[in-house]
Design a protein around this nucleic acid. Structure first.
Length: 250
DNA sequence: CGTCGCGCAATGGTTACCTCA
DNA sequence: ACTGAGGTAACCATTGCGCGA
């Protein structure tokens, strides 16, 4: 069950780190593990652990210029407790609708007021836009820990006037966004790696050609100075030891 | 004033783990 | 000790609403 992600996380193996305390440190660790030794930090994209990361990742934030509300108040979240669960045994899983009636901020004189609540409940899900404040609080909480235990969920829900399920969904979606962003970062990183390697490959080929040409010259071996370029790894600047053999001759 | 595209809240399905009979 | 059922909590892909362009 180890959530080690030792490989490049691009692959995003579908290991579910269940019941693991996932933290932002976890994300940072993940990024660190990915980094090959020879890349300069300045080349690296912004890490999720970077304070600026989120701002960068979600520049627009959640745009709510008006207080959201939800007019539907069908069945209450009888369960506060189990968002996801149980429904597998009950028909239609969680068909419960999240009503925000208890949230004063969410009592918008609904623009969609034309429809009756009954209609709402029956066949359409209503969507609310979280207010800026709500988003900010959730964001702050997410920054501290990107998963919630039931207690925290309840507390946050109460604080924000949302349903626990809504808080949970927000965190789920937020994690998905983070992951997507991380994938983009990983892609960018790999792209750069590829470019660097391509460039290095090109350079080495050129060098091989030059050496071949030199070899053909009569006094090559006598005049040859130490082939520093062959003993140093160009990218990481360390001795490459017995370098991979480059066949100079036929 | 439509409509189109995008962001994101919400849904449904799946899986892993835990508890208990 | 083993096993199967039920519950819980995480993940994912997808849906569809809200809203700005």
């Amino acid at each position: 069950m180890g959530d080690t992600d030792l490989g490049l996380s691009l692959s995003f193996p579908h290991h579910h780190h269940h019941h693991l305390p996932t933290t932002s440190a976890h994300a940072a660790l993940r990024l660190n593990l990915m980094m090959p030794p020879c890349l300069h930090p300045s080349q690296l994209p912004l890490a999720p652990s970077d304070p600026n990361y989120k701002a960068q990742a979600f520049p627009c934030g959640i745009d709510v210029n008006r207080p959201p509300s939800v007019s539907e108040e069908c069945e209450d979240d009888a369960g506060v407790s189990s968002p996801n669960s149980t429904m597998s045994t009950i028909s239609g899983k969680r068909s419960e609708r999240e009503s925000n009636a208890e949230d004063p901020e969410n009592e918008r004189a609904s623009s969609r007021g034309a429809m009756s609540d009954e209609d709402d409940c029956e066949n359409s899900r209503k969507k609310l836009r979280l207010s800026k404040d709500q988003s900010a609080v959730l964001e702050g909480s997410f920054r501290e820990h990107n998963t919630l235990n039931p207690k925290q969920k309840l507390a946050l829900a109460k604080q924000l006037g949302l349903r626990p399920r809504q808080v949970e969904v927000w965190f789920q979606n937020r994690r998905a966004r983070t992951k997507l962003k991380q994938t983009e970062v990983d892609c960018e990183f790999l792209k750069r790696c590829y470019e660097n390697l391509t460039e290095e490959n090109r350079r080495l080929h050129k060098e091989v050609q030059e050496l071949r040409a030199l070899k053909l010259s009569p006094h090559f071996f006598m005049r040859m100075s130490p082939p520093t370029t062959l003993t140093m790894c160009p990218s990481c600047q360390r001795d490459s030891g017995p370098s991979p053999r480059i066949a100079l001759g036929p």
